[in-house]
Amino acid sequence: MAKDLVCGMDVDEKAAKYKTLYNGKYYYFCAAGCKKSFESNPQLYLSGAGSKGHNCSCGCGGH
């Protein structure tokens, strides 16, 4: 399982609908909003400072 770096949720790489590539590495997301947030500032989320946990606005409700 991979972690959605934006909302902190666990995502199955195989079944993930949303993913992106950054520096040659794949990142997986639970929703389009998380993907967008990550793409707009990947460094922020990679450093861990951007993760908002269950309060994110991705619409997944942290689940």
Partner: peptide, 12 residues
């Protein structure tokens, strides 16, 4: 069925 734009790389 699924579409992902991978900025700077292409699409998957």
């Amino acid at each position: 069925e699924l579409f992902n734009a991978l900025p700077g790389y292409g699409v998957e």
